[in-house]
Design a protein around this nucleic acid. Sequence first.
DNA 1: ATTTTACAGACGACCGGTCATCTAAAGAAA
DNA 2: TTTCTTTAGATGACCGGTCGTCTGTAAAAT
Lengths: 195, 195
Amino acid sequence: MSKRELKKDHLLDAGLQVMATQGYNGTSIKDIVDAANVPKGSFYTYFKSKEDFAVEALEKVTEERIQHNRHLLGNRSVPPLERLTRFFTDNIGGCEQGIKGGCFIGNMCQEMSDSSEVIRLKVRQMLRNNTQAIEDVLEEARLDGSLKSPISSAVLAEFLFNAWEGTLMRMKASKCREPLNAFLTLLPAILGNQS
Amino acid sequence: MSKRELKKDHLLDAGLQVMATQGYNGTSIKDIVDAANVPKGSFYTYFKSKEDFAVEALEKVTEERIQHNRHLLGNRSVPPLERLTRFFTDNIGGCEQGIKGGCFIGNMCQEMSDSSEVIRLKVRQMLRNNTQAIEDVLEEARLDGSLKSPISSAVLAEFLFNAWEGTLMRMKASKCREPLNAFLTLLPAILGNQS
DNA sequence: ATTTTACAGACGACCGGTCATCTAAAGAAA
DNA sequence: TTTCTTTAGATGACCGGTCGTCTGTAAAAT
């Protein structure tokens, strides 16, 4: 990784942390460069606009998550359904500490979907990636017989991931683990019910 | 309702519509007063700050929702579980057209929970109100025997409402009904499973 | 006449974005 | 090796515009 790429990465990392807690419109370019200890003028050397920064940040956070999940969701030595449960319990910590900041993708989705089409499309793509990862594990579980639900893996994955995002969101407001507990209580019932 | 209260209400209504699509930080005082056709200087006659406006808007939107739901969730001539299903299918339209804007409370939750404690607390309260309404119907269904889940109504209500908010959020990004369909597909399974 | 409310305009701060200038390393010419 | 030229990247001052809020006055209400 070149020096240039390192600096851009640093800008992305530092800015992401600010934008994840203050939102897109609540974060100024100055906030971002200050957090990265980079002069303001340099920002536009690396990003063509604030919007562009957000899109790249969205990509980065998802890329990191996917890399993290590859070990978790793709680990064949653990039963698929247990892997899925771990995916949720592990990400509560990994997703910007869960209770503070919440899920960056979810935040951007709510704040920007109706304001920026570029961001909306990127968010949609990132959400799809996550849903697909869940669907893959569910399909695996179906093949080994541990998933008996008559509902298709695609629908199940869509529902579960959306419910999960809603859970993260609720935790932002409530600042407690109750929503997480409710989710984890229902999860086995949803996966294991009906023949 | 006095003339003053009417004007304030109008300001709240018009501003809400803007803030629901553009977010808190994406909406200026000018946007609000322009939408309501009220001179800019008048804003601070009715609200002590922008933050105060948001809190009052949050209260208003929930108050309206509750009034709307009182007919729906409290209507004893319809079986409780069917009332609950209707609550979701009806609110998809009522909740700012669902696909555009999404749920105002959810939007504010994601954008502002970490920036304004006043707004966070109001959001939490409003979310609790909604959850409680669902819990009440579930409890009713349990008493009449139509709800057999061994999971407590409180946990069930918490999960369902969060899943619902996640569904609304996803629809903002995807602009399609797939998330809603997934939710409605899983709903009976969650309510009706296990003995 | 006195108090209260409505509002135009102004306030300084800050916004996202631009730009002329500076720096420093690489290459060419000597 | 030394000097000069070129150039990509770095940078802080600065742009027009907008932000949330306040103040002074006019209008209205009592």
